[in-house]
Design a protein around this nucleic acid. Structure first.
Lengths: 149, 149
DNA sequence: TTTGTATTGCATCATTGTTGCAATTAAATA
DNA sequence: TATTTAATTGCAACAATGATGCAATACAAA
């Protein structure tokens, strides 16, 4: 089943505290909260989605800076969608050497799934062009939303 | 050569005025300016790049609304890069039925090229998922910037 | 318990997306 | 060519987001 295929290793083997410790990060409230939410939801979340449950738990800037720290340390990654919004998701451990970052975005429920490892991209680039990273956003309907329409 | 491969059909056969007329749009200053710049540069441009030559020629809102109109009419398209910035490029005429929108972004000179028609994406999506569009941004160095380093 | 450093909240500013409204302009008609 | 009407534009204004400085606070090591 799909969830099993893409679920996060963190989810199975590490607690929030262990993740932070493994990356030499202090055990602070905002970090614990963000990682806890991401582990719980198992899909990518926007800053607003992170605020939903407890709107005033943390300052906007703290959330912003904490997300940046977690990204810099390689714990989460930013996903920029085609409508210009941004979501964050926990990094998976496989595919560390893969430069293809591929996500599915449901245009109806707005959910985002990581497709890394299940996708492939090829391009005929002009002579001398050097590829560093490839970012893909697949837009469409997820199984749930597609069957409802 | 690369440019020949991807150059725009508009560029060869139509003037700015003809493009507007073909889409039932009035011949206004801002529209003529934007299309003129895009035809001249032959690559994608951001709102700021469009303002560079004549910073106060048009109001920010006019530029914004005009870009939207041109996009709605299918004359140009938005390209959302991974750093959250947006560029606009003239639509090509081939690939009308293709849902793969693929661009190269040079991280050094910031130039963006359309790769449509020269790229391919495949993903193993879970059962029941419906793909509508695929947006790809390839990040790297263009031939010019790569050879300079 | 104390202490030094990292984190947080608050103030603040820049940029970008967006809308309403009144003035202006394009282009169709008389 | 002058008139008319609808579309376009500029301005004011607001929201959302990205970003930084600084002082207060919290973490975790000693």
């Amino acid at each position: 089943m799909f969830v099993a295929k893409y679920h996060l290793r963190y989810c199975c083997v590490m607690t929030v505290e262990e993740i932070l410790q493994a990356h030499d990060l202090k055990n602070t409230g905002c970090r614990k909260y963000i990682l806890g939410e991401l582990l719980k939801k198992e899909t990518a979340m926007s800053e607003n989605e992170l605020k939903e449950s407890y709107p005033d738990l943390f300052d906007r800037v703290t959330l912003y800076r904490t997300l940046k720290t977690l990204e810099d340390r390689g714990i989460i990654h930013r996903i920029v969608l085609n409508d210009n919004t941004v979501k964050y998701a926990l990094n998976k451990r496989h595919n560390e050497n893969d430069n293809l970052h591929s996500h599915f975005h449901c245009e109806k429920c707005d959910e985002v799934l990581c497709l890394d490892g299940a996708s492939r991209f090829d391009a005929e680039l002009p002579e001398g062009f050097l590829v560093k990273d490839v970012f893909v956003v697949v837009e469409g309907l997820c199984a749930n939303c597609g069957s409802l329409s």
